[in-house]
Design a protein around this nucleic acid. Structure first.
Lengths: 206, 206
DNA sequence: TAGCCAATGTGGTCGATGTCAACATCGCAC
DNA sequence: GTGCGATGTTGACATCGACCACATTGGCTA
């Protein structure tokens, strides 16, 4: 058992992020404490200062990793299904799946503590990557006629609203006892129906 | 200058809630401090304890008022438009409108700090009222044939996801420079198209 | 190879916060 | 009127974020 901890940790920054996420998963974002994180990792209370200017910076780092993970998970659907329509559905499912698999991450990513993305440019970039995949799939769908024509930005915003709202509501425990899987299917079905090709049946724009 | 403050405030509880909301609007949820709220109202730092067991209780009270306001604002559409379809659209718009008009309230309502609604039954009840209006309108629409048949719970969840996601994204500044009004219209349009009567064009349920 | 220096971790401190407990003051029921 | 519960005050304590001076390390250079 000789090995006593060396004076330098080696990879403290990542260790702090990991410990922070673990803490958030167990006791919520508000329980995240710089000192507690430092304790978990086995360094003194001031050590994190060398890697994160303040508490907000640590939270932002956790959120950034969450966005990267979401972007990767969502981007993976690009090679999955054959038709753009199927890919669009798979993309929606992937978004919600990631949220349910990593609820703590999701909560941090859209926490008010990092809402001001102008102060965390890397956050905005990571979020933009997710949105980019969505716009890309919608544009593809439009080229193949499986998605109704229209401003891709507006359509992607509508689609994003739907899957994001679904994810947030499910995480917040608004499933009301129903099967989450069924609710996700319902949402993605309606997403598909709402975006699919058809002539508008009534007046648009209030 | 005669009037010195009486020993008892008279309506401290509501005054604290109001001050708390104001503070949140100005500096964010994380800046909400029991002592600062007490200072604003002009009482000593321990006075709030008589009305709120802890900081979380105050936050929950603010959230509860937000839910009540949203429920009222949304319920108002019941008497507005003629057809159920129009009412459904108006309902979605009303939801997002309230969110944009009271962003701080919305953020608190869905803040992780009150996510555990089991510890705040009155919160769950207020949220349920909002959802109830939605289910009611969808059931009405189905009776008149302007909404596709299907489990009303699933349909309302899909609709709720859409408007809630839209509201959250807009509040979080994800409008990307586009007109919020146009984005809301796009979302509600797709909501209407997704729920409207038609035969499913492809397979459903993965 | 010797030494030097920037990066990284330690220990101490300060003001602010949430929470508790003991005390002061008020208003309403009797 | 009087007594008691509700409400507000004062004081205290542990913890937190942030800052500082100092200690230790490893890598770079001369």
């Amino acid at each position: 058992m000789g090995k006593k901890r060396p004076y330098h940790h080696g990879n403290l920054r990542q260790a702090l992020i990991d410990a922070a996420l673990e803490l958030i998963e167990e006791r919520g974002v508000s329980a995240l404490t710089l000192r507690e994180v430092a304790r978990q990792v086995g360094v003194t209370h001031a050590a994190p200062q060398r890697h994160f200017a303040d508490r907000a910076a640590l939270v932002a780092a956790v959120a950034e990793q969450g966005f990267r993970g979401l972007a990767a998970h969502v981007a993976a659907v690009r090679g999955s299904a054959r038709t753009p329509a199927q890919r669009l559905r798979a993309l929606g499912v992937a978004y919600v799946e990631y949220a349910l698999a990593h609820p703590a991450h999701l909560r941090v990513m859209f926490s008010p503590e990092v809402a001001d993305k102008s102060r965390h440019p890397e956050l905005a970039a990571a979020a933009q990557a997710v949105h980019g995949t969505l716009v890309e799939q919608i544009a593809n769908g439009q080229r193949q006629g499986s998605v109704a024509p229209g401003d891709p930005d507006e359509l992607s915003f509508a689609a994003w609203s739907m899957v994001h709202g679904c994810a947030v509501l499910l995480i917040d425990g608004q499933a009301m006892g129903r099967s989450k899987r069924a609710l996700i299917d319902a949402v993605v079905d309606r997403l598909y129906l709402g975006l699919g090709p058809r002539e508008p049946s009534g007046k648009r724009r209030s």
